[in-house]
Amino acid sequence: MKRKCFSKTDFFLIAAVLLIALAFWLPSLFGNGDVTAEVTVDGETVLKLDLQTIDAPREFPLDNGVVLLAEKQSIRVLSADCPDKLCVQAGALSRAGEVAVCVPNQTVVALHTANGQSEPDAITY
C-alpha cells in the first residue's frame, strides 16, 4: 500500500485542528470590554495599565530596552533591542487574550479583561 498524499485521517486531523483553534479563539472574541495590559519581565509584573484610562499616547520605556507605546484601547511594542523584533511586528494589541512576546528580553505584554473574567483570590473587608 502506497502512502497517499492526502488521506481520510488527514481530513479529520485538519478538522480537529481547526476546531481547537476556534475553541481557543472564541473567548477572546467575546471578551472585548475593559482591558488591562499587563507587562511582565522574567515572570515579574512590571507594569499594569488600564487601557481605558489612557487618553493621550504615552511611551513606557522598560529597564531592559523594550519601549512600549500605550494608546486609548491599545498597546504596542514600539522598539526593542532584540535581534528578531518579533514583538514589534506583533503590532497593536487591543483585545483580551492578545499577547506580544519578546523572548530574548523575557518580556510579555498581555491583555486581560479587567472585570468579571478573573475573580480575585480573596476579598479584604
Binding site: 515572570g43 515579574e44 509584573t45 478573573s118 480575585p120 483570590d121 480573596a122 476579598i123 479584604t124
Partner: peptide, 19 residues
C-alpha cells in the same frame, strides 16, 4: 476579611486580592 497570602498561585507569581 483579613487576608494572608503565602507562596504563589497556580496561575502565576502574584495573588489578586479584591478590596
Amino acid at each position: 476579611g483579613s487576608v494572608a497570602t503565602l507562596g504563589s498561585p497556580e496561575t502565576g507569581e502574584r495573588w489578586t486580592v479584591g478590596i
